[in-house]
């Protein structure tokens, strides 16, 4: 952060910088696989999720609060797949649950105010190199399941049922392009939403710091309202963290439904 007297400048994008922590020059086949802060927070997210799930493994007939919470989450994903895909959706519960919980916890952990302890959380879902991989995995599942289950008949997905024959030649390319855009929209939506919230919080925090650095008058006029707005936006970001994870899981399950049931 800027120190009083310097040209107070906060770079709101600096928080997204990926820094290697271990094995800076670790390569596989010429590609760098350094263990970065991004990888560290992936690991922390995975461990938090694993610990959370252990609470659900007590397998008691009358569940405690923790077990109940875990069962609520699995039931939520199970119901979502049941509603969107049907009975065949059950076999995708492990994938959609992993996806949803991993993204949700990553979003929430990235919002934790750990900066006051000197630890800076890194929100890896604000990188399209990560969200893009999730999108590609979901899209690959759609393609593999679609072609394995329906063969070339899968292409009938691009012709909505009841389309008049002359319209097929117009609609099919549009449907095809919209289908191809799915992985991009899926990956970009999460990345943009997470990045925007973090940038907004960073910009507002720079208003608070710069305002107070410029004097008590600016501090009261700019700093205090900005701080109040930050508090409100933090609450909004928690909501966005949940919604984006839900949207990602929901859209993945809807696309899987296309592959399972065509139309």
């Amino acid at each position: 952060m800027a120190v009083a007297g310097e040209t107070a400048k906060v770079d709101p994008m600096y928080q997204f910088t990926v820094k290697p922590l271990l094995g800076e020059n670790l390569d596989i086949a010429g590609y760098n696989i350094a263990f970065t802060n991004s990888a560290l927070w992936m690991l922390i997210t995975a461990v938090v999720l694993w610990v959370f799930m252990i609470g659900g493994m007590k397998r008691e007939l009358v569940p405690g609060r923790w077990q109940m919470t875990v069962e609520t989450f699995t039931g939520f994903i199970d119901d979502m797949l049941e509603a969107n895909v049907g009975k065949a959706g059950r076999k995708y519960v492990p994938y959609i649950f992993s996806l949803f919980m991993f993204i949700l916890l990553a979003n929430l952990l990235g919002l934790m105010p750990l900066g006051i302890f000197g630890v800076h959380p890194f929100t890896f879902t604000s990188h399209f190199t990560v969200t893009g991989i999730f999108a590609i995995i979901s899209f690959a599942i759609v393609l593999i399941v679609g072609f394995a289950k329906h063969g070339l008949h899968f292409f009938s997905l691009f012709v909505p049922s009841g389309t008049p024959l002359p319209m097929v030649f117009v609609i099919a390319p549009i449907e095809f392009i919209s289908f191809l855009f799915r992985p991009f929209s899926l990956g970009l939506r999460l990345f943009v939403a997470m990045m925007a919230g973090h940038v907004l919080l960073e910009v507002l925090s720079s208003f608070v710091i710069d305002g107070w650095n410029a004097g008590a008058g600016f501090g009261l006029l700019v700093g205090v309202p900005s701080f109040l707005l930050m508090v409100a936006i933090c609450a909004l970001e928690i909501l966005v963290a949940g919604i984006q994870a839900y949207v990602f899981a929901l859209l993945s399950s809807l696309y899987i439904n296309d592959a399972e049931n065509l139309h």
Partner: peptide
């Protein structure tokens, strides 16, 4: 960073998928 992101995401999300999921 893309190769490192891809590698660690696959390793860690793979762990999440197989162990948790």
């Amino acid at each position: 960073i893309w190769s490192s992101q891809l590698f660690w995401l696959l390793v860690i999300f793979g762990f999440v998928y197989f162990v948790v999921g």
